[in-house]
Every structure is written in C-alpha cells, then in structure tokens.
Amino acid sequence: MSSKGKHVVPSGGKWSIREAGSSRASRTFTTEDEAVEAAKKIARIEGATLYIHGKDGLIRNRRSYANDLLPAKK
C-alpha cells in the first residue's frame, strides 16, 4: 500500500494535517502536539511519510512509516 505523505502545518494560529498535494486540511487542532500525534497514527496506518513543519512553514522533521504498516484485522 502506497500513500501520499502527511504534513503537519501551521494554520492561522492552529495546526492542520494535510495530505501531500492538497491545499485543504483534513483535520485541524489547537496545538501542534495534538496534530502531530493524530498525524502519526494516520501515517502509521497508511504506511505514509510524515512531514512536520515549523511555524515558519519549513519542514523540520520527517519520519517514514512505510515499513510500519499495521496488519489487517482478521
């Protein structure tokens, strides 16, 4: 399963999760920590790469979950 990267980005005083190539947020959070934790879960499930941006918009951290795919429930 291949998935687009997930980006945690600043958004008007809040923090959003966006899929690579999308201009719209899939979810928005009050704090960066909340957004990062939610994005980690999504990236792990989808086997995606997570990009965490700083307040300046530049990527400051990257983590690949491509090998961490959760097994399908039986």
Rank of each mutant, 00 (worst) to 15 (best):
E37G: 01
M1R: 11
V8T: 01
R44W: 04
A43F: 03
V9N: 00
A20G: 03
Y51K: 00
S3Q: 06
K4V: 11
L70A: 09
R24E: 14
T31N: 09
G5E: 10
W15G: 01
W15M: 04
L70I: 15
K74V: 11
K73T: 12
S3A: 15
E19W: 13
E46T: 07
K6L: 15
L50D: 01
S64H: 08
I45S: 09
K55T: 13
D68A: 13
R44M: 10
E37H: 11
T49D: 07
P10L: 06
D68P: 02
A66M: 12
D33T: 14
S16P: 03
N67S: 11
P10V: 06
E46A: 09
E46D: 15
G13M: 14
Y51S: 00
W15Q: 00
V8K: 01
V9E: 04
S23T: 12
E34R: 07
G57R: 03
H53S: 06
Y65V: 02
G12L: 06
S23D: 14
K41N: 08
L50H: 02
F29Q: 05
Y65P: 01
G21Q: 12
Y65A: 00
A35N: 05
K4E: 15
H53M: 05
A48Y: 04
Y51D: 01
H53K: 03
S23R: 14
T28N: 05
T49M: 08
Y65R: 02
S16I: 07
S26L: 11
A48H: 04
S26I: 14
I52L: 06
E37C: 01
D68E: 14
S2E: 14
I17C: 03
S11E: 15
K74H: 03
S64T: 14
K73C: 05
G57H: 03
L58G: 03
P71C: 04
S22F: 10
